[in-house]
């Protein structure tokens, strides 16, 4: 099982293979992904919205040819949705169908039947553990889930095993590559963080952002991309309620291209500002500070 051991040869290999899928990783990202692979530890990726956290997991899955299994967290997510659940309805049907059988014999039979594989609904965590092929497990927006889910994750992520009372303990045949993402709307527990490698994704450097924009919007002239990235960085330097993300830079690039602007001047920026700034107060501030209203 050579794949089980190490997926990547070295840091440069990580970067190259992620790059081939269209994800431009910087030194820190590539190194951390490499380490997560080597140390077989879950990777917790935290950062503002729209900097490519989920994208990283997708790129990684396609880079190593693994299937992506995604657990989307939300408020009220519970074990039944994350791990496994018995299919009550089907179980009831089985009992009703077997109600003709008499005595303890019949009940015993029914009991053995309804707690078998057939009646088990496998949810993302269990699915990821049971898969024999390479798997990337993405636990998305972990901060949205309730604190109890973290406890559940702790158990699953540290031993890669799940205990189902009726079936026994299921241990991972092949440990999945786990990526957790978080927008930091709340601090995740220390215990969870301790078990993970931590990667803080932030807005990229100007050069890298230009590369990203150009790789996503290849038709955009380089000159325009450079101007656009500069304006985005100027916007991020202001005190805004929501700074523009990479995803929004890319949207902006698409917009500029679609509208066919030749230069990225005041008029162009002012007319398309809504693509990157989504609070009225932020727009007013940008127009004021960049002196867009003059023209």
């Amino acid at each position: 099982m050579s794949l089980q051991e190490h997926t990547f040869a070295d840091v440069a290999d990580v970067r190259e293979r992620l790059g081939a899928t269209g994800y431009l990783a910087d030194e820190a990202i590539a190194t951390t992904v490499f380490l997560a692979d080597r140390l077989r530890k879950p990777l917790l990726v935290e950062g503002p919205a729209g900097v490519g956290k989920t994208e990283l997991a997708k790129a990684l899955a396609s880079a190593v040819g693994a299937e992506l299994i995604r657990l989307q967290c939300y408020e009220g997510l519970d074990e039944a949705r994350a791990l496994y659940e018995w299919n009550y309805k089907k179980q009831l049907l089985r009992i009703q169908a077997g109600s003709g059988e008499s005595g303890t014999q019949g009940w015993q039979q029914a009991h053995d039947d309804i707690f078998s594989e057939e009646f088990l609904l496998s949810r993302p965590l269990l699915t990821a553990i049971r898969r024999e092929e390479p798997t990337v497990l993405l636990v998305d927006e972990t901060d949205k889930a309730d604190v109890e889910v973290e406890g559940l994750l702790l158990e699953v992520l540290s031993d890669f095993q799940v205990t189902i009372p009726e079936l026994g303990t299921i241990t991972a045949v092949r440990k999945p590559f786990v990526i957790l993402t978080s927008n930091a709307t709340r601090e995740l527990s220390e215990a969870l963080k301790r078990r993970c490698l931590y990667l803080h994704l932030d807005y990229p450097s100007a050069e890298r952002e230009k590369e990203i924009v150009l790789s996503r919007v290849p038709d955009l002239p380089e000159k325009l991309a450079e101007a656009l990235v500069r304006v985005v960085r100027a916007l991020r330097a202001m005190e805004l309620r929501k700074a523009p993300s990479i995803a929004e830079s890319i949207d902006w690039a698409h917009t500029v291209l679609a509208l066919g602007f030749d230069t990225f001047d005041e008029a162009a920026v002012a007319s398309t500002l809504g693509v990157v700034l989504k609070h009225a107060s932020d727009q007013a501030r940008a127009i004021d500070q960049l002196k867009l209203s003059a023209n």
């Binding site: 500069r230 330097a237 005041e266 920026v269």
Partner: peptide, 10 residues
């Protein structure tokens, strides 16, 4: 203009 402001920021 805008270009100058953005360049200044850089």
């Amino acid at each position: 203009g805008l270009a100058e402001r953005a360049a200044r920021q850089t």
